[in-house]
Structure formats: structure tokens, C-alpha cells
């Protein structure tokens, strides 16, 4: 049975699309057929992060409106076997997402894929609500700062009250906390909340902590999910998170400030 996973946050710019791309790719790398859907109608980004922007012909809204078939709209990822992208429409707005339309497309996707990753837009309005409505699991992306934590708290409340599972009184949506842009040095300096602080406030299980890194920005600009960069700490952290999502036990890494070796410091090595 296919699992629908929403990647959401409330607040914008915390790394939802980067995380959707990385986690979707990670699931496909492990042999699970996966589709990532961009729910950010009007502010399409996922195609850029996945490096398939030039191959978008039809989109999610076209499929909802019956103007294209799923096969026409799905873009097959060229790097990872079993990975597909369903891009958002850039020329429409969130009203194009209807409950019946989204439900119909998801039902069709469920028959073909093991995992359906829904990349939610920011905010708590219609687009975000449609993205989380059908979810079985939710990955709540949070930056270690107070406004992001509060917005995540808000979206967790919406998951518990407005998702299909909540409305129909089924088993609640399974929640995961993904802390991104984590900088242990700034935590030590008291400029950022610690993972423990965030966990205490949100009170949901920790899926992973992604260190703040230039590699993430570079990967986004190159249209290559950072998880494909096995040398980067952020890539490794996403890999661990995907393993945990699949139920494996992985110790959390990159939580403490790195003690740079003397030589490394001298030579200016070391990754950001």
C-alpha cells in the first residue's frame, strides 16, 4: 500500500523543497518507486531543485483538469531509477487544487508508486491544506529559530484537526521532525535553538538534523538533490533520515561543533 508523505513547515524558506527532493531521491535510491508532487501551484520550484525544469510540459493542474494524463505529466528522473516528479503549474493559483481533483490523482498514483512525497507550499492556507489533507505521514521541516518552531507547531495542529485522517477519526498522521540549517557553532554561541529545545517544544519524534552547509545551496543551484552528494555532511544526514523513515535505527550525527584539526585550520580545509 502506497504511503503518502507530506513535507510541510508553515513557514517559508526553511527547506521543504530541498528536503522533498532529497528524501524522495533517497527513497527511490533504496528501491522504492517514488513520485514527488509539487503542491506549490504558482511558485513552482521543485523542478529547479530536481534539475528537470526544461522538461516540464504538462503539470499537476493539467492532470486535475483532465487536460493531460498522468503519464504525460510525470517526469522521469534521469539520475535515479524509479523516481518521478509531478510538477506544479506556474501559471495558475492554489484554487486550481480541488479536493476531488487531488484525491483522484493521488488514487491513481497510489497504484503505481510505493511512496508519494507531497512538497507543500508555505503558509496554512488552501495549498498547504491540500498538500497535507491526504497524508499518512508528515515530515515537519523546522529551522532552529523561534518563528519557525511556532509555525511548525501551528501546522502540527492543522495536521491533527484538518487532515482526512483526523476528520474521519482514523489513526492520526504520523509526525516526524526534520531540523534543517542546523549550525552547532551558533547553537553553542546561543544564537540558535538547540535540537533539544526544538524537540521539547514540538514534542514529536526526531527524524533527522541537517547541518547548515554551502553544499545544500550549491546542490539547489545545480539542480541536483544534495542527498546524491555522499561526501557532503548534509547529504549523509539526509541519507540517515531516509533510513530512519524506513524504520532503521541510525545515530544522529553532526549535532556537535566540529573540532577542526590544526592542519586543517591552517590549510583552510573543512567544509562549511
Amino acid at each position: 500500500m502506497a504511503r503518502i508523505i507530506v513535507v510541510t513547515s508553515g513557514k517559508g524558506g526553511v527547506g521543504k523543497t530541498t528536503s522533498s527532493a532529497a528524501i524522495g531521491t533517497g527513497l527511490a535510491q533504496r528501491g522504492h518507486s517514488t513520485v514527488i508532487i509539487d503542491f506549490d501551484v504558482g511558485l513552482r520550484n521543485l523542478d529547479l531543485i530536481m534539475g528537470c525544469e526544461r522538461r516540464v510540459v504538462y503539470d499537476f493542474v493539467n492532470v486535475i483538469n483532465g487536460e493531460a494524463t498522468l503519464n504525460q505529466a510525470l517526469i522521469k528522473d534521469k539520475r535515479t531509477e524509479g523516481l518521478f516528479i509531478l510538477p506544479a503549474s506556474q501559471t495558475r493559483d492554489k484554487d486550481a487544487l480541488t479536493e476531488e481533483g487531488v484525491s483522484k490523482v493521488l488514487e491513481e498514483l497510489k497504484e503505481r508508486f510505493d511512496y508519494i512525497v507531497c512538497d507543500s507550499p508555505a503558509g496554512i492556507e488552501k495549498g498547504a491544506q491540500m498538500a497535507l489533507y491526504f497524508a499518512d505521514e508528515a515530515i515537519v521541516v523546522t529551522n532552529p529559530e523561534v518563528s519557525s518552531v511556532r509555525d511548525s507547531d501551528r501546522i502540527l495542529g492543522i495536521l491533527q484537526s484538518k487532515s482526512l485522517r483526523a476528520r474521519e477519526g482514523q489513526e492520526p498522521v504520523k509526525e516526524h521532525l526534520l531540523v534543517t540549517r542546523y549550525n552547532p557553532a551558533r547553537v553553542s554561541a546561543g544564537e540558535m535553538l538547540s535540537v533539544a529545545d526544538v524537540e521539547e517544544i514540538l514534542a514529536i519524534p526526531l527524524l533527522g538534523v541537517i547541518p547548515e552547509s554551502q553544499d545544500v545551496l550549491k546542490a539547489s543551484n545545480q539542480g541536483e538533490p544534495v542527498i546524491l552528494n555522499a561526501d557532503a555532511q548534509a547529504g549523509q544526514a539526509y541519507s540517515d533520515a531516509v533510513d530512519r523513515l524506513l524504520g532503521e535505527d541510525r545515530a544522529h550525527r553532526f549535532l556537535d561543533e566540529q573540532k577542526q584539526g590544526f592542519l586543517k585550520r591552517l590549510l583552510g580545509g573543512g567544509r562549511g
Binding site: 511556532r150 501551528r154 491533527q160 484537526s161
Partner: peptide, 8 residues
């Protein structure tokens, strides 16, 4: 029994 979240 479940957390009461911001906005609830």
C-alpha cells in the same frame, strides 16, 4: 491527551 498546538 494530544498536544494543544499553536492556534488551537
Amino acid at each position: 491527551t494530544r498536544p494543544v498546538r499553536s492556534g488551537q
